[in-house]
């Protein structure tokens, strides 16, 4: 039996510790936000937060997580009350087919937990590991900018000093 700290609560699953976290989230815990894309760490659809950092859940054995806190998009808000990043994605209509979006939101959340005043370049570098085949990148980037503002920051020009 493996015990996990997921979205602020304790979750248990009777699985082999080598099982990828993604399978445990989806198959055992019923958390379906994170998606299976490639299973090879190439597409980012499975991205979740582990201790505030973005990780590919398809390549992280569940036994490696230990005490670290796992956050999925389910932990960021609900349909009725979306979190600020989710709200920004909705307002910018950043999703098309939507398959990559939970990974994108997790990645944006990780960036904004690190800094609410990233540069344009930092933002793009942070989002780059997640792919979107529909081509809504510009809207996704707009959503991240909007979320940064919602969190009291915004995208900064590296030449300008931040107050």
């Amino acid at each position: 039996m493996i015990e996990l700290n997921v979205n602020g609560g304790v979750a248990r699953a009777d699985v082999d510790p080598a099982t990828p976290l993604l399978y445990v989230l989806r198959d055992d815990l019923g958390l379906h936000a994170a998606k299976f894309g490639c299973g090879l760490g190439q597409c980012g659809a499975c991205t979740v937060l582990v201790d505030d950092r973005p990780v590919f859940a398809c390549l992280l054995p569940v036994g490696a997580i230990g005490e670290r806190a796992v956050t999925t998009v389910e932990g960021l808000g609900t349909t009725v009350e979306p979190g600020d990043v989710q709200r920004a994605f909705l307002q910018e209509q950043a999703g098309q087919c939507g398959y990559c979006i939970p990974g994108m939101i997790a990645r944006a959340e990780a960036l904004l937990r690190r800094t609410t005043t990233p540069t344009e370049e930092e933002m793009r570098a942070a989002m780059a590991p997640s792919l979107c085949r529909c081509g809504t990148h510009m809207r996704i980037l707009r959503a991240v900018r909007r979320a940064a503002v919602a969190r009291g920051g915004g995208i900064v020009d590296p030449a300008e000093p931040v107050a």
Partner: peptide, 18 residues
């Protein structure tokens, strides 16, 4: 070995996509 199995083997065992 357990970590390798979960984190590395999908790509690195013989016949894997990489």
């Amino acid at each position: 070995a357990r970590l390798y199995e979960g984190a590395c083997a999908t790509c690195h065992e013989p016949g894997a996509p990489m």
